[in-house]
């Protein structure tokens, strides 16, 4: 990736567009229960908004947003969220990913437990997909190189 592009107009357009895409992505993740969408789509939209800034602004500006270094731990966090959602269920006596066994606070019916379980994993997927798509873009854009 180039250090910086000299096109203020493109950068301005991207900066105007990016937050709305990001907002839409978050909306898609959280509204996936009621309409088309979910973790993948939302994560991909979030990634697009970040990549948009990276493409139009170059490396220096994109560092201000999400540093390249943080994408890997972010991806790991996404996976761990999903994994824990399953593993905690195991600890509380259910099968892996059995949301009925999840210890959410409050007195919730099984259906509501599942509702929140799905929400948790969608968030995990969203984080992971966003981080990894950005990560792939970063690695590709830098080519084969030392860290």
């Amino acid at each position: 990736m180039r250090e910086q592009f000299e096109s203020p107009i493109v950068l301005l357009g991207a900066r105007l567009l990016s937050p709305y895409i990001m907002l839409f992505g978050i909306y898609v993740i959280f509204h996936g229960h009621y309409s088309p969408g979910g973790g993948f789509q939302g994560g991909a939209l979030l990634a697009s908004s970040i990549i948009l800034i990276r493409i139009s602004g170059g490396r220096i500006i994109s560092r201000l947003q999400i540093r390249e270094f943080f994408t890997t731990p972010l991806a790991a966090i996404g996976v761990i969220v999903y994994f824990l959602a399953g593993f905690v269920a195991v600890l509380y006596g259910g099968y892996f990913l059995d949301y009925e066994a999840l210890p959410f606070p409050g007195d919730l019916s099984p259906a509501e437990l599942r509702y929140y379980g799905i929400l948790v994993i969608e968030i995990g997927i969203g984080i992971a997909v966003m981080a990894i798509l950005v990560m792939i873009y970063d690695h590709m854009a830098r080519g084969e190189d030392y860290v």
Partner: peptide, 17 residues
């Protein structure tokens, strides 16, 4: 079965950390 297979995933996340 879950332990045997998913154990690998736990370690693949642990190793980078």
């Amino acid at each position: 079965p879950a332990i045997i297979s998913l154990n690998f995933l736990a370690f693949s996340v642990l190793i980078p950390l």
